[in-house]
Design a protein around this nucleic acid. Sequence first.
DNA 1: TCTCAATGTGAGACAAATTCATAATACTAA
DNA 2: TTAGTATTATGAATTTGTCTCACATTGAGA
Lengths: 301, 301
Amino acid sequence: MHLEFRHLRTIRAIHQAGGLARAADLLNMTQSALSHQVKGLEDQAGIELFVRRSKPLKLSVAGVRMLKLAERILPEIDALEEDFKALKSGKTGRLHIAMECHACFDWLFPVLELFRRAWPDVDVDIRAGLAFEALPALMREEVDLVISSDPVQVEGMMFNPLFDYHPMFVAAASNPLAGKEVIVAEDFRDQMLITYPVSRDKLDVFTEILSPAKVEPRGLRQVELTAVILMLVGSNRGVSVLPDWVLRDIKSNADYVTRPLGPGIITKRLYAATRVEDSLKPFMAHFMKLARSEPVKLQRG
Amino acid sequence: MHLEFRHLRTIRAIHQAGGLARAADLLNMTQSALSHQVKGLEDQAGIELFVRRSKPLKLSVAGVRMLKLAERILPEIDALEEDFKALKSGKTGRLHIAMECHACFDWLFPVLELFRRAWPDVDVDIRAGLAFEALPALMREEVDLVISSDPVQVEGMMFNPLFDYHPMFVAAASNPLAGKEVIVAEDFRDQMLITYPVSRDKLDVFTEILSPAKVEPRGLRQVELTAVILMLVGSNRGVSVLPDWVLRDIKSNADYVTRPLGPGIITKRLYAATRVEDSLKPFMAHFMKLARSEPVKLQRG
DNA sequence: TCTCAATGTGAGACAAATTCATAATACTAA
DNA sequence: TTAGTATTATGAATTTGTCTCACATTGAGA
């Protein structure tokens, strides 16, 4: 039937204006053009859209049905345009986050809660950054923000610093290492080490401590959930190294000890990687502001 | 933003086919044309609809929103087309009825109940034919069917006979005329006559009895509702002439008497006037079939 | 780096929509 | 009825926009 938006607008205008000539004015075109158009449309549809027995033109039964459609559809088009405007101005958009850092769930959830309240129209999602390479996905626009602690200089990408943290050693109070003030690489040699199930180059224990010292722990165990890691540590089935914000609840728990890693104090920095064109968007900026301030509150308990 | 249905179909096709080239096949056009179209659309919208970093093409955030719109709107267009097909074949349509005959509510309601069950998609309405001229309205397609007892030969119109009825005299049992077997014009001279509030040429009492005999009743009173007329007659505040089907309940009521009008037996015929092009439509035919059979059941009590 | 598959570009052909000028048709008020 | 006016229809010319063809360009993977 080759219907076009033009036709819907025409139907609506003729109905509103109460006649073809007036509708032509409304649509900024000649009366002739409208007449041709209506005729063409009726030919296409194979049905009379208007009652021609009378002047001015009046909608027929079929015309009324088409009008109903127009009144349902045309506002949606306008809404889309509004939506696009909002997208362009950054009032809305998509914020799909990939995390290389597994423990980040801990502070990310509260941050996203605040964020969603401030930007209800932004489409938020988290994708655990395990099954795929996060940075290429960012380039391919499959995700919009990557939480990472390894800034890389790449064209078109921007690493925005969020906050610093200290990887901390955690063990059961009954563990022999509880007696030491600072934990160093050699201390792991006799321990079962519990980590998230990701490659070693993304685990602070290895990148900062064990790999440089070429120390291998007695055993390794990979566990997905932070709570489970802590449970296992609590029952002295192993030790772990976790960011300080994860250990806020543990510090005051007599079953656990948390110790700094040594010999020097280890400080790491988290970044939010975005595409440069996105980094200026208001909601992005706001997310990063939240991601800078909220986790610090957690770190301080 | 000059959006067209074509564009919505394109977005949907590219998404479905997973790429521009394959989508072009789907839409029976060259890949080049699609590329031009997409580019034009993006220029218009002022926003990227696709992620071009990768091949094949993939929807961007804005593109996804447009896709959502397409998936909501395009089926509606198809539905309209279906609707039109149904209109053309007469499976659906409009049946706005105008009544010149006021008492017809009585049998029309049950008939419409049956009709609506059989043709749920037909848009039914009744307009009491008091405030306007019914036949011109029929010509102007403001209504689709007129109930009338005065067939006229008019180009483009058709008077389909429905059923015959007898205008009957009704009075209180206490009224002196109750003693007569047949009521004639002269009998009205001493009576208060109660009628519907329409012109005399649409009232059987006048057209069939009083006007030919040039008899004027003692008084006239116009009442809108049949039930009220009967109430007034029952308390002997006046007499009336009503179609036989209206008096079905009254016949067995000792407070009333019903009598034929004379001297000869008066028979009138009701017609359903339609436009000739409508009279063949299935739902019209069915309506008239119902309107021929159902009222007769009422007449017989 | 090379090759293949996919997408982009530009010029010309073609179809469709619009305009201008004018005819035909309904409505309205004497 | 009959002008007179308002409204819609028609035809030819023009403009607009879309498509195709041929070729250039670009990514992705070997």
